[in-house]
Design a binder for these strands. Sequence first.
DNA 1: GTATTATTGCAACATAGTCGCAATAGTATT
DNA 2: AATACTATTGCGACTATGTTGCAATAATAC
Lengths: 125, 125
Amino acid sequence: MNRRKTPSKEKILAILKSQGDAISHETITNQITDINRATIYRILNQFCEDGIAHRIIAENGKQFFALCKTCEVEEHHHNHLHFQCNTCEKVECFESEINISLPEGYAIENFNGLINGYCNTCAPA
Amino acid sequence: MNRRKTPSKEKILAILKSQGDAISHETITNQITDINRATIYRILNQFCEDGIAHRIIAENGKQFFALCKTCEVEEHHHNHLHFQCNTCEKVECFESEINISLPEGYAIENFNGLINGYCNTCAPA
DNA sequence: GTATTATTGCAACATAGTCGCAATAGTATT
DNA sequence: AATACTATTGCGACTATGTTGCAATAATAC
């Protein structure tokens, strides 16, 4: 299954790049009207498979996607934390990696860590 | 809104107690047939509101619920990690709390951390 | 230019969870 | 024990998010 370069993929990639935060499928459809729902989902899934983006599961179960900026190609891990603001609902990646230690005999494959709270613009004084 | 003690709540609480792991709505309906879907959801939500249980969001967006064993009543926090096995799909609570440091001006309200991988019985040798 | 097959759009589907409403059943008061 | 109050339940319908099968289209290699 070789990947092909298509306008749809480039548009979605451009949106992901332009956005500092992690974005949901909804955010993308708000900016693109000429690409089918299913296609967007398929492209996002493909990006995740290919290590171009990573997926974050929000508190409500919704998926968010962010470009893998800090991920080395050789060592692809995502054990950094994410933050979602309860007010403005934006999702950010936090830089700092967290240390995960597992019990004997356990093996890690992926980590999804999400903090919910209020960001610096939405936090009550 | 005062809470009332009902057979439905007691049954679900009993299941949560009997289960060592965090369980999904599905697991409950497999063990109870005479309680309505919607009722189970409502009771689980109520348990979360009341601090009796906490909610874990799995990789696929599904909700899991676990009794709050280690949570002090006064200081109710859930910044411990959870683990879901990709093979047997069970969800466990890990004891160790993790340290979360936020950027200036941010406030935390909740944390949901899930490790995906293979548990000690399912891990490949 | 042609053949191959990845990608797309469409529609239908799947699943998880929620909500409004009327009926039922805890709880407190008398 | 009967009554009033209202939390809870069951039912059905609904919403939202994401997936899938299939035929048509288009990117790539030759």
